[in-house]
């Protein structure tokens, strides 16, 4: 309890960081935007150019980065807590690729033209299916290696399936969009996309409210947790469903942005006294901050064709991942 003040300060600090990044994300772009003038024009509703750029392009983009990043960070923390495995994250255990596979199917084969709400539901089912397959293949108390291997297999299968679907899709432009799904991209989304992802995202978040205490108890071992009134079976399903809802919605909107759910809980764990329950909220904030920052990064780095946001998160995340593996070898061998 000695670090209690630091704990209480951390969420506040993260909130401030997220708020600053959100504002920066509105102001920064390939076209300079006078933020106050744009804000004024938008509030007056006079449909001037700056107002439209702000309200129709930049705000949806920043909101989507905020919510998708928060979902990824939160779900990473929840999965790591549930599986008591530092390498568990939506990207590694297949939830993200499963969601992307189903989202691609629904989008490119015209189902979502008539019924847009099918998209997040389908992505959620895909995430759920992939997660369950990995979980069943790896077994309940899987070692890190088994879990990762199962994840690799399911990821490979889902990515191959996605590639096949995009090749078969009626649109001639579909084939080139594989990279957009595997690396993730938030360019040119609209408020419609944002509203579509919100219900399932919030549903997933709400389902995780109150899970924190049980995850804390789970660190004592499944038996002990059970004796303390936690039903591990129910907890597992609750987390899987919540993760599928939130990750499904995020992936269907922005593609598979990797490493956010892996890196963020790790960075923040020491600051919350290694308690999975308290990690949840700060990881959500951290995830939002990381994705907002990465999305600002792709707009600042002057490349001819804009970078995909997943390129940046992977460049930061992959070395981190390697360090984790080295660490876990030391601990578990």
């Amino acid at each position: 309890m000695s670090n209690a003040p630091a704990n209480r300060r951390l969420p506040v600090i993260l909130c401030v960081v997220v708020a600053l990044l959100f504002i920066a994300s509105l102001a920064i772009g390939r076209e300079p935007l006078p933020l106050f003038a744009a804000l004024g024009s938008w509030l007056r509703g006079d449909d001037a150019v700056h107002g439209i750029i702000l309200s129709q392009i930049r705000i949806p983009r920043a909101l989507i980065a905020l919510f998708a990043g928060a979902s990824l960070g939160l779900c990473g923390a929840a999965m790591q807590g549930l599986l008591r495995n530092p390498l568990a994250s939506p990207g590694l255990v297949g939830s993200a690729s499963g969601a992307a596979f189903f989202a691609v199917f629904v989008l490119y084969f015209g189902v979502s033209n008539t019924m847009p709400w099918v998209l997040p539901i389908a992505a959620m089912c895909g995430a759920m299916l992939a997660t369950i397959i990995v979980y069943l293949m790896a077994g309940r108390d899987a070692s890190i290696t088994t879990l990762i291997l199962a994840g690799v297999a399911v990821n490979a299968l889902a990515t191959a399936g996605m590639s096949l679907l995009l090749n078969l899709a009626p649109s001639p432009f579909a084939v080139r969009e594989l990279v957009l799904w595997t690396l993730g991209d938030i360019t040119d989304r609209s408020m419609a996309d944002f509203w579509l992802m919100i219900p399932t995202t919030i549903a997933g978040w709400l389902l995780l409210v109150g899970v924190g205490g049980q995850l804390d108890t789970l660190t004592l071992g499944e038996r002990t947790a059970e004796s303390m009134g936690v039903n591990p079976q129910r907890l597992r399903w609750r987390v899987f469903i919540a993760v599928s809802l939130a990750v499904g919605a995020a992936v269907a909107t922005v593609g598979m942005i990797g490493f956010v759910g892996l890196v963020v809980p790790h960075l923040l764990r020491p600051y919350v006294g290694y308690q999975p329950g308290r990690l949840l909220m700060v990881s959500a904030l951290g995830g939002a901050a990381m994705l907002l920052a990465a999305d600002i990064g792709v707009r600042i780095i002057p490349t001819d064709t804009p970078l995909k946001v997943g390129v940046l998160t992977a460049l930061v995340g992959a070395p981190f991942f390697l360090r984790l593996i080295v660490q876990s070898r030391r601990e578990y061998v």
């Binding site: 490119y108 084969f109 033209n113 899709a169 009626p170 649109s171 080139r176 969009e177 991209d185």
Partner: peptide, 8 residues
């Protein structure tokens, strides 16, 4: 190809 979907 009007009526088909791609992000593009």
């Amino acid at each position: 190809s009007p009526g088909t979907y791609s992000r593009a």
